[in-house]
């Protein structure tokens, strides 16, 4: 038996039908008259034509997150970076819906970036250069360990590195450029819809 035939043959019955005598199959009526052709209205994605409303972070924190995105995943001549991918905006949305410990990790981590930047340069993190940020981001140059660091700031930087990279690589902006270069359909996966919910 071919697979599709086999799968189609797995006909399950709702309980109300299976236990009593099965109902006779309904006879199909005449086909409805052809309907007018339905229009296919073109739309655009919100994030390509509008600005998102920042929810999880204050202005200083959000500026620090955007600067961090631009440093950790910079725009390269042929590859979009974190800013191009609006990684900051996306992470603001994601963190706004995250459990409290994740929200705290980000809030405290971004505040610490600003504190460290002000201490060293007199400016918030969002206004310093990548070179000035280098000593602040020193924990990212330490070797990987499985055990999370006991230092919350290091934990934040590692989480932010992973999140910004993923938010960038899974973005429309990044995938459209890389797909054109590789001639492959990047970022595609099999999605499972809610099943008979």
């Amino acid at each position: 038996m071919k697979r599709r035939t086999a799968i189609r043959s797995i006909l399950t019955l709702p309980a109300a039908m299976a236990l009593p005598v099965p109902l006779p199959a309904q006879v199909a009526g005449p086909a409805p008259p052809p309907s007018n052709e339905m229009p296919d209205t073109p739309t655009v994605a919100a994030d390509t034509h509008t600005d998102t409303v920042v929810k999880a972070f204050n202005a200083d924190q959000f500026a620090a997150l955007n600067k961090l995105s631009s440093i950790l995943v910079p725009s390269l001549p042929d590859t979009p970076g974190g800013l191009d991918a609006k990684a900051g905006e996306f992470l603001d949305f994601l963190i706004s819906q995250s459990p409290p410990d994740r929200v705290m990790l980000y809030n405290e981590g971004l505040d610490r970036l600003n504190q460290e930047a002000r201490k060293r340069t007199g400016k918030p993190f969002g206004e310093i250069t990548a070179e000035q940020a280098r000593p602040i981001l020193a924990p990212l140059h330490e070797p990987w360990t499985y055990e999370p660091s006991t230092d919350p700031f290091t934990c934040f930087l590692r989480a932010a590195k992973e999140d910004i990279l993923k938010a960038t690589r899974n973005s429309r902006q990044y995938i459209s450029v890389v797909s054109r270069r590789n001639r492959r359909a990047g970022g595609m996966g099999i999605y499972w819809f809610p099943i008979n919910d």
Binding site: N170, S171, R172, I175, G187, M188, G189, I190, Y191, W192, F193, I195, N196
Partner: peptide, 9 residues
């Protein structure tokens, strides 16, 4: 019916 291709973004 229950699955289909989607782009991650």
């Amino acid at each position: 019916r229950d699955r289909g291709f989607k782009r991650v973004y």
